[in-house]
Nucleic acid binder design. Structure first.
Lengths: 250, 250
DNA sequence: TTAACTCTGTGCGCTAGCGAACATAAAGCT
DNA sequence: AGCTTTATGTTCGCTAGCGCACAGAGTTAA
């Protein structure tokens, strides 16, 4: 199998803050106050935005990258708590008041993001207007995702979890093409790499995905949704409910 | 084994809002505004405060009961997302803006709570003072607990999870005595009842707990903490960090 | 006292996922 | 070209947890 390499195009497109759905959902007034302070930064694969316990300096608004919130255990194994893309932001603990979290934020799919100095974020947040309420609604969507991850980890097979994970990731990119090795997916799901290989093989056999050396293409998304567990639907429905404005973006 | 029955005493003690750590952490000024609107309600075992998707009318501040946030799957099996006791409140989605959540809130250990009409809560919340910031910090602690539940579900044995669960529950009651059948614990952990029986048997053999027909007594808490996985420590440490004021209560 | 019920204990076969070891194959390097 | 590195495929034995069935044992009700 030979795969296209759309990475180049991703990094040469025009960037603007409104590619992020949360930023896009803000009123012109707030945008005018906030956007001048945004800084476009590259998000290479594997970049760690913060480690567990780090005091955060910035919040990040992804435009075309995916960032995972990952908990790393004492013995080194890991589990993904949630996925963030153009639908959200990294650094809720900055305005939640904790300044740090117990998880690590790591770029799982390269691209770009806008970052904002934490203090600026807090200043706007404390004006108590729409940013506050938007952030809170997003936080609730994130909470839903975390809760559903817990459920999924308990009850569903690797096959189902892989489907859910692919869908959540695809929803946070524009195309049906993921740059991601099975090894990395295994880290995210907190399972063995071999388990992912076998699950991916089964999906391929059913004509749902093609893949090769770090590239995955979903060829039959309806089937993928059908094979996934209810967890994906729950997260999707709740996100859409909580952040309807943000669906209009892009 | 015959067990003491301290339930009676629980329900005849004097009640006051400050038994809830969050309410206790508020300034006298905010307390004076808020407390007149609090209503003491009984929380019998199994009472459902809200179902998935319900619009919430009240937020609940437990004083001496424990409430579980539980996700119930399509096939009826369940998994606990987090535990709330006198350390917190039920109904964050009211001020987060979503009004409802995908989980069910169910009383897991009977007792009392103060409830507050959602609108009153929002009014105070929108004054943008300390209640706002206290609620946000609590929300972050809750997020940590959910995230850690996901991790624990993925990586740890039933034995470890039972230890974690016992510790989290005990921390939210005053004594070392739980009223809880193995069947219910199994529902919370999302595992078989027999699995809990076996794990409990092993804990008993090691002299950590005594139990009989719905009563569990922890006889060696240090050992219990030692047998638990890191997840308990992570949640505890983060909760203490985020809500230090609340530790002073009681 | 007997009966019904609830909670806990135990055994059995089954499967998913684990850990480890190793094979193949594609991509990159010199 | 060959060599190295990285990604994926496959096998094998092992164990935790599952589903099921049923056996006590304590509790409540008649």
């Amino acid at each position: 199998m030979s795969m296209p390499a759309p990475l180049q195009s991703r990094s040469t497109t025009q960037h603007q803050p409104t590619q992020n759905h949360l930023l896009n959902a803000l009123s012109a007034e707030v945008q005018q106050r906030l956007f001048p302070h945004l800084e476009l930064v590259e998000m290479p694969l594997g970049k760690v935005l913060y480690e567990s316990g780090d005091v955060m300096r910035y919040v990040y608004f992804p435009t075309n990258c995916i960032v995972s919130l990952l908990y790393v255990m004492e013995n080194g194994s890991s589990a993904e708590i949630s996925v963030v893309g153009f639908d959200g932001l990294i650094g809720v603990s900055l305005f939640m008041g904790g300044e740090s979290t117990t998880s690590r934020a790591i770029v799982q799919s390269s691209g770009f993001a806008y970052r904002l100095l934490g203090q600026r974020m807090k200043d706007e947040f404390n004006r108590h207007g729409e940013l506050l309420h938007l952030m809170l609604r997003y936080s609730q969507a994130l909470i839903t995702q975390m809760a559903q991850t817990a459920v999924c980890n308990r009850h569903h097979s690797i096959d189902q979890q892989l489907c859910r994970w692919l869908l959540l990731s695809l929803d946070r990119l524009k195309d049906n093409h993921l740059v991601m090795t099975q090894e990395l997916i295994a880290n995210m799901l907190g399972v063995r790499r071999e388990g992912v290989t076998e699950a991916a093989g089964r999906l391929h056999k059913q004509g749902v995905i093609d893949y090769s050396r770090g590239h995955i293409v979903v060829t039959n998304r309806p089937k993928l949704e059908q094979l996934s567990c209810e967890c994906y639907d729950v997260v999707k429905a709740e996100t859409d409910r909580l952040l309807p404005l943000c669906k209009l973006a892009m």
